[in-house]
Amino acid sequence: MTRVAIVTGGSRGIGRQSVERLVEDGFAVVVGYGGNAKEAHDVVETLTAGGGQAIAVQADVGDEVAVKVLFDTAESAFGGIDVVVHAAGVMHLAPLAELALDAMDRMHRTNIRGTFVVDQQAARRVRTGGAIINFSSSVLGLGMPGYAAYAASKGAVEAITLILARELRGRDITVNAVAPGPTATALFLDGKDEETVARLAGQAPLERLGRPEDIAEVVSFLAGPARWVNGQVLRANGGIV
């Protein structure tokens, strides 16, 4: 039986790389996307041309009706759901005293409400032996200025992750979060000058930015062989303390 995964935020960056890795691992994948229809359909076209199974479905992760349709479509197309990777997220950076509250609200809707809505459907639908994988961030432990609202939203993701793992006792479903460090994606690079990027890249002992495929490798691990890893936050950041 082919295993089935839903990946939100699957049209670009870490989400897209996770889609590609899971298809390589033999999954049929539903690419959830918000507004990047062309990119989502491009990745599906590329994967299906290579013999993979993938479809694209638009869904605002903060909209419980749209997310229900996303899960319904996955079940209709492929017969069930084994893994949910919730990679959709937004980031607005500014000192706490200066951040516009509407920017904070947008992060709250996508990063907190979105995680809750997606995980709620996942908790109801993922089959025995499955996995739910959320996304936090290593900035939560670094206390970097300008990240207060974003880090707060990811703190909520970690709380949801750890509690849901315990609530699914007896279901043989793992629930974990991946917390990337600085990773070379549009979400991270947008608005940063070369000096800032170089400084952040130098934080890790490996002296580079993470790559989306580095994070997708962790997703693959949690989606497949990592059956004894549960209720954890894996900080995939190259050794940043």
Score class of each variant (00 low, 15 high):
185 T>V: 09
194 E>A: 13
198 A>Q: 14
126 V>S: 07
219 V>I: 14
236 A>V: 01
60 D>G: 02
104 M>W: 14
12 R>M: 10
200 L>S: 07
186 A>G: 08
172 D>Q: 11
211 R>E: 13
46 T>M: 15
81 I>Y: 02
102 D>C: 08
102 D>F: 06
94 A>Q: 10
35 G>V: 04
128 T>A: 08
198 A>K: 12
191 G>E: 04
225 P>Q: 13
15 G>V: 06
204 A>P: 01
214 D>T: 01
128 T>R: 15
239 G>A: 11
223 A>S: 03
120 Q>D: 06
158 E>I: 11
188 F>D: 05
70 L>H: 08
187 L>I: 14
42 D>W: 05
122 A>D: 10
210 G>Y: 07
146 G>I: 01
117 V>W: 07
20 E>D: 13
129 G>Y: 09
40 A>Y: 04
232 Q>D: 11
5 A>P: 12
37 A>H: 05
169 R>P: 04
65 V>A: 15
28 A>L: 06
151 A>S: 14
105 D>K: 15
138 S>L: 10
159 A>R: 12
101 L>M: 05
35 G>D: 09
104 M>G: 11
217 E>L: 11
99 L>Q: 13
46 T>E: 14
135 F>A: 11
219 V>T: 08
187 L>D: 11
204 A>F: 05
7 V>R: 05
126 V>C: 06
175 V>H: 10
136 S>F: 02
121 Q>F: 12
83 V>C: 04
86 H>I: 03
160 I>H: 12
105 D>H: 13
56 A>I: 15
147 Y>H: 14
91 M>P: 03
101 L>A: 00
30 V>D: 09
148 A>G: 12
167 E>W: 09
43 V>A: 03
72 D>M: 09
189 L>K: 08
40 A>S: 01
124 R>K: 12
81 I>D: 02
56 A>L: 15
81 I>E: 00
80 G>H: 05
190 D>W: 06
51 G>R: 13
78 F>Y: 12
59 A>S: 06
201 A>V: 10
146 G>L: 12
183 T>F: 10
11 S>T: 00
213 E>N: 14
162 L>F: 05
158 E>C: 11
5 A>E: 00
190 D>I: 12
67 V>I: 09
210 G>V: 06
99 L>Y: 01
62 G>V: 03
75 E>V: 10
18 S>H: 06
237 N>A: 01
49 A>G: 13
195 E>W: 01
72 D>N: 10
16 R>W: 01
159 A>W: 01
117 V>I: 07
19 V>A: 07
